[in-house]
Write a protein that binds this DNA or RNA. Structure first.
Lengths: 215, 215
DNA sequence: TAGATTGTTAATCGATTAACAATC
DNA sequence: TAGATTGTTAATCGATTAACAATC
């Protein structure tokens, strides 16, 4: 078992995937699984799965495999899903409203407690019981509720100023849908970026380089 | 210069990022750049940038660096951004409508030509001039327009059947926002997955393992 | 006990970084 | 020409895979 700081980013990137597949197996009634079986399902090697799991502890039993219910509990703990962090969402455009209304924050370690938009058009509209407020209410809200995380669903040009403001107000973590590179200015913040256009361009590349192949 | 099939996934994952930064530099009026300067801006090493670029050809000039306008052209070609593929979007819920209305498909190598939803509630509503149609119109539409790609914005439980239908209708590429694992059943299709909840769980992990650190 | 499967060490493979001759 | 910077080869580093003793 390693110190959590020593977990490589390759391993980290696989953790949510493990959690997702294990939950799915459990929902289907499977109670135990070997690294070999899980490898087949997930498209990994059994070796890799055992290596990955053993970064966090010896969850298995020789000759038996892994207990899925236990594994799910371990991974939830590793990912911090049980310690709900409070989150606010900035930018209630199409994307912001989609995220606010469809993402089940509670299952992923967060609780959404506020939604803000610079456009007063949205003011007062509720999403999941949470009223949308104007941007000028952010400071007071943060002073009162000290949100841990902010979901950034605003255009890249408005992001820098907003991040400055939020950092000033004590927000240390960002789920960033904008194209503003937060870590360049604030390398110590906790950031997960979602670059939808990068993903779409990657698909364009894959298509370009696979055409002519059989399906 | 390598055969495009030999490009490693590590390099591929960096291509959209290069394109994005180069466009930004160009928009700011920069016309040339050395691998060293670009490395500082992007947080890579100069070595890696030169290695990456040389997978595709020698775009630079000794003693001078790289011409940004030329590089952007090369990358657009590499990514296939100029050969517009036709796309349809399935699922006009919050997320689907957000993607349909906000993503600039044309800049990323695609042209959105149809939107479909199983719920007739949306029928006739237009997003960017494209009317939302009911699911039962998909077959006729595909027979007529032969879309290259489908954006899947529907729940995981409805995805398998929809993918079967679309594959049958000749769609070979998917931008997949659902949690259905398309490649397990169809390993030869072109797929880019967007797992928003994986990203959010990763952020939860990062926060859990960074708390106590200075910002 | 015998069979199965883990946890862990060793071997391999691939990606990143460093170095430097080529050359603009 | 001298300085700068590439393209490319070699060295290093890290991640993945294989192997196997430990043990349930």
């Amino acid at each position: 078992m390693k110190n959590s700081r020593d977990i490589s980013s390759s391993v980290i990137s696989r953790l949510p995937r493990y959690y997702r597949f294990l939950c799915e197996l459990y929902a289907n009634g499977t109670t135990r699984i070997s690294s070999k079986e899980l490898a087949e399902i997930m498209g990994f090697t059994a070796s890799q799965i055992r290596q990955d799991f053993n970064c966090f502890g010896g969850f298995g039993q020789q000759g038996y495999g892994y207990n899925i219910e236990q594994l799910i509990g371990e991974f939830a703990g590793i990912l911090g899903l049980n310690e709900l962090k409070t989150a606010i969402l900035i930018g209630a455009g199409n994307l912001g409203r989609a995220v606010a209304s469809q993402m089940s924050f509670e299952d992923k370690g967060f609780r959404l407690i506020g939604i803000f938009d610079c456009d007063p058009l949205y003011k007062g509209i509720k999403i999941r019981e949470i009223p949308i407020s104007a941007d000028d209410a952010i400071a007071d809200f943060c002073h009162e509720h000290h949100p841990d995380m902010a979901v950034l669903c605003l255009p890249a040009d408005k992001a820098p100023e907003m991040v400055d403001t939020l950092v000033e107000l004590g927000v240390k973590s960002f789920w960033n849908f904008s194209h503003y590179d937060i870590l360049r200015k604030y390398p110590k913040l906790n950031v997960a970026n979602v670059h939808l256009s990068d993903s779409l361009m990657t698909l364009s590349f894959i298509i370009k380089n696979n055409s002519g192949e059989e399906v």
